[in-house]
Write a protein that binds this DNA or RNA. Structure first.
Length: 557
RNA sequence: GCCCACGUAGCUCAACGGACAGAGCAACAGGCUUCGGACCUGUAGGUUCCGGGUUCAAAUCCCGGCGUGGGCACCA
């Protein structure tokens, strides 16, 4: 609904510009609170054209501007060269409340949009997910939720790298070391993987056996295939459990090897060979320098076997036939991402989009599954939930243990998800326990608490229609404004493929509600009906936003 | 060495090229006569890494440094 206000402001402005024959793009931005609800800095741009000061132009325009009757614009003021638009809260409030209540869980949802294949997590099946993979999974899952809400038909995919050296080492290790069946399956695989790597380091001559394993796997040796698949599946079983706890689910698991087996890689190679970018040397490679990539891209070795990126080209062509493609990848894949884009362009396919996130490292350096240096996602979640339990117990000691445990689970998981998603992906992070487990005041629990407070009020009263809109307090106005902005935030997040604006939005909303709660009594108020409805609208919006972040809205906590 | 990203309060992070750079944590000072205090109010804290440039306007864009992370395999 805030967007309706924006549109009203735009149209009013457009009209006078047109009347004066001025062609200038209209941009409206969020001003400081004291300057209204939307601001147009257009007079600064017009100043050199009209040869007048911005302030003078603003004064002129504000006199001419006409606010249409049904508009959500209350008034327009000129100040310091800006045109400031003020929202008519009394008009907006009843419309907004009605709309939010009518739409409920669909408030903010957008119309049907296209299909998107979203790949995320895609960790090597050589051990449990560590916190770095966690960043990938949480960014990916949150984006999937947002895009789905924005009307897209989303299919989330986990690409299983079953043709890589890592899995080969696992298979090699499984022939030599005992798999601990009592452990969580991904942990058990990691144990074997780490042991195998140690052995390989001590006896480098064994590397030949790894290569042979890979060759046999690619060649289609039935027995070897069985070993690889069993190992990968066993590991993924554990990975899936970790993700489940974080409320993350993949629609499909796509196996790298399938593109070799169905010879789509061969077909792609043939197509690529027909382009002018092939470099004819000892090996088959591509010259991508015209795309600003100096490094040549090798597609096949001397013996004719393919490389990882080659298979990924076939994989991406397959994906692009299903819809738009978005990949959530780590910063170590930046080059491959650029190469893939270039190749897809060469082949006349739509280029995939990439969400690249920077690494999470430990204070002592980068993580390595191979060396066993990592903090697993399970550990992090477990600690977070444990920590949450302590907090719940402190506040709700009298409640049943079942209740406290379930709240702790939601709060712990929510905190992990929120702490990751609030940081933009392009920032690298150094993991510190104290920080990861610090339930900062303004984090997931803060928002969940706002939701619980709203539910608490609504529980105690019958919700009717909102009645007349009273004169609004500042706290009410702010709350109304923020609620009305929700659909716009969704649109922004969906368009920019970013989750962090939603993360800060939900904080703003919770914050505004907490303040409202503090200063504006609901049940004892003269405006009880209206305020109850405002609480309900807040509750609905909070709930929708929390669901998109994968954080459970709790009626009680 | 070359390529890419990042550098904002003591710490963790925000800020479509726009008004005085904002939150939280930590510090300090307040608020239970409660619809649940996982809350609210206030004070203090800044050369937006440094130096140039473009612009009416730069944390944001461009150029050059410095620092951190990542890439530069017939690995994945």
């Amino acid at each position: 609904m805030f967007q309706d206000f924006k549109k009203d402001a735009e149209e009013a402005l457009e009209k006078i510009l047109k009347a004066r024959n001025i062609e200038q793009k209209i941009v409206l931005e969020k001003p400081e609170e004291e300057f209204g609800d939307l601001a147009a800095p257009i007079c600064f741009e017009l100043a050199p054209v009209l040869k007048k000061s911005p302030a003078a132009i603003a004064e002129e325009l504000v006199k001419q501007i006409k606010i249409p009757k049904g508009s959500l614009v209350k008034e327009v003021k000129a100040f310091r060269g800006y045109l400031n638009f003020y929202l008519d809260y009394e008009k907006l409030a009843p419309l907004l409340i009605k709309k939010v209540r009518r739409l409920g869980e669909n408030y903010g949802r957008e119309k049907k949009n296209g299909k998107i294949v979203l790949e995320h997590t895609s960790a090597n099946p050589d051990g449990p997910l560590h916190i770095g993979h966690g960043r990938n999974a949480i960014i990916g899952d949150t984006l999937a939720r947002i895009l789905r809400f924005a009307g897209h038909d989303i299919e989330t995919q986990f690409y299983v790298n079953d043709m890589g050296k890592q899995l080969a080492v696992v298979v090699w290790g499984l022939r030599r070391f005992k798999l601990d069946r009592n452990k969580k399956s991904d942990e058990a695989i990691a144990e074997v993987y780490i042991q195998a790597n140690r052995l390989l380091e001590e006896n480098p001559e064994n590397e030949k056996e790894i290569s042979e394993l890979l060759r046999n796997y690619e060649a289609g040796d039935k027995k070897v295939i069985k070993e690889f698949e069993t190992a990968a599946k066993y590991c993924i079983e554990g990975i899936t459990k970790t993700l489940e706890r974080l409320k993350i689910k993949h629609d499909t698991f796509v196996w790298e090897s399938s593109f070799v087996r169905d010879s789509s890689v061969d077909r792609v190679i043939r197509k690529i060979k027909a382009t002018k970018f092939v470099r004819h040397g000892e090996v088959l490679s591509l010259d991508l320098s015209s795309f600003g990539i100096e490094k040549e891209l090798v597609l096949a070795r001397k013996d004719g076997t393919y490389l990882y990126t080659t298979r990924d080209i076939a994989h991406h062509i397959w994906k692009s036939t299903q819809g738009s493609v978005i990949n959530v990848w780590g910063a170590d894949h930046k080059l491959v991402a650029a190469q893939l884009k270039a190749v897809l362009k060469i082949l006349g396919q739509k280029e995939p989009e990439f969400i690249i996130y920077e690494f999470i490292s430990l204070p002592e350096g980068s993580m390595s599954t191979r060396k066993g240096i990592f903090i697993s996602l399970d550990e992090l979640v477990e600690e977070s939930v444990k920590r949450a339990y302590v907090e719940v117990n402190k506040r709700r000691g009298e409640e049943s243990d079942k209740f406290k445990k379930s709240v702790a689970e939601s709060v712990g998981v929510g905190a992990v998800r929120y702490n990751i998603v609030k940081v933009s992906p392009e920032k690298s992070m150094v993991f510190k326990w104290e920080e990861a487990l610090d339930f900062e005041r303004q984090g997931a629990p803060f928002v969940q608490y706002a939701y619980a407070r709203a539910c608490g009020i609504l529980e105690k009263a019958e919700l009717e229609s909102s009645g007349d809109t009273p004169v609004l307090t500042e706290n009410e106005k702010l709350l109304i404004k923020i609620i009305s902005k929700f659909p716009g935030v969704i649109e922004e997040c969906a368009n920019t493929r970013k989750a962090s604006p939603l993360a800060s939005y939900v904080l703003d909303l919770a914050n505004a509600f907490h303040r409202f709660y503090m200063f504006e009594p609901v049940l004892k108020s003269e405006q009880k009906e209206f305020r109850l409805n405002l609480v309900e609208a807040t509750r609905i919006t909070l709930r929708n936003a929390l669901n998109l972040l994968g954080i459970e809205p709790l009626e009680r906590m």
